[in-house]
Design a protein around this nucleic acid. Sequence first.
DNA 1: CAGTGGTCTAGACCACACA
DNA 2: GTGTGGTCTAGACCACTGC
Lengths: 234, 234
Amino acid sequence: MVKYKQIAQEITDYIVNNNLQQHDQLPVIDDLAQSFNSSKSTIIRALDILEAKGQIYQVQGSGTFVRDIILPGFINLNRPEGLTQTLIGSDIETRVMSVSIIKPDATMIENLRCGPNEDVYLVKRMRYLAGQPIVYEVSYYRKKYVIFLNKEIAADSIFKYLRENLNIKPGFSNSYFEVSPMDEEIAGYLEVAPEEYGIKLINQFFLPNGATFDYSILWYHKDRSKFFVPSTYY
Amino acid sequence: MVKYKQIAQEITDYIVNNNLQQHDQLPVIDDLAQSFNSSKSTIIRALDILEAKGQIYQVQGSGTFVRDIILPGFINLNRPEGLTQTLIGSDIETRVMSVSIIKPDATMIENLRCGPNEDVYLVKRMRYLAGQPIVYEVSYYRKKYVIFLNKEIAADSIFKYLRENLNIKPGFSNSYFEVSPMDEEIAGYLEVAPEEYGIKLINQFFLPNGATFDYSILWYHKDRSKFFVPSTYY
DNA sequence: CAGTGGTCTAGACCACACA
DNA sequence: GTGTGGTCTAGACCACTGC
């Protein structure tokens, strides 16, 4: 890991370990530079990352402060990589309904920007929060990048597997959502009446080089899902 | 405006003016540095901003590419400063229902982090897209920062007024949303049946120094609102 | 006016892509 | 191997806050 990312991580840990709250002040840049044995520029770089993530804010002439965004029960749409990342510590259960390899249809070719003969993993899962159905997921992964996947892996966090075993990290993502009625099958999975409304979230995940590797459709239970989006202005 | 922000703006303009599409390549950093008569570091700084905003992505060893996020009809939750910013060019009408000065209640004191005797502007508006009701807004602005507001100003973009007339720019913001039934009054404004579901969006806006200046509750018509969130990973 | 963050530079060197 | 982006540094100077 490069130095400025390492420092950013350690500052995050420092905030958590010292239980710093919103608007608490961090050490000044010169002190951080000395602690981490780095130049001022590198500290600034690290703090810029934390600012972009919404963890801190910097006030010229005054200091660097914590921006606490830990909100129990809210799904952070700035990190849409699945529930396990965003609802940490919650009681999440996953039921894998199927894992298969298919050829893409027109929608998938457009959304994954893949070739018509490429192999694509199709994963269907139901996820439960505290025993209650919260989201039904249909995900497509290009086999070209996600070279292996099975039911055991999908029962856990797929993004964790991608990161730790395949060394795949997203570079950027797009999320779209709207409220829409669910068909009978999906309503059944979420244990609500047919034609009931759900929150339909579509995610596209890109590798750092711009290639799409994942396209997902998620149906959230409208009464059990709350979302959060932090923004920083430049 | 500082140099790197100016350069970032000019690169954005360059993308728009040349009608560059997703995955089109930008000039290389050395060329940009020469064009803008700046150092490589300053160009990198400018590109980092555009990357954080989701407008470009950079691939080591390969180049800098456009990440097109112009999605007609989608509200960008990474810039929740009102419809006029995010649905540019759309046919938006605003009906100002009231502008008044009040004293905060407990909820407002908590969400605005203001004193109990501070004056607060209360603004209620309905907004229409192509003649159809799309969102009902209740906004609170601390008079301490937003020193003046009236119906005429609220009929236009309030954030534009803040930026251009009061020199107020947000430093960061938090948005929370969920799907929830609307009471009779709000359902009436949105011209739907009472108890119909709406998308309830709560925004908190902070100044660059960390003070809250705006807290808003927005009820979107569930069938006419679609949202978008771009993310970048560091 | 002392303290703190912000900007900008020049340059050395590293990492990755692609042909 | 060449070209492209990424990291890191030291230092000069600017801008804002708050006592």
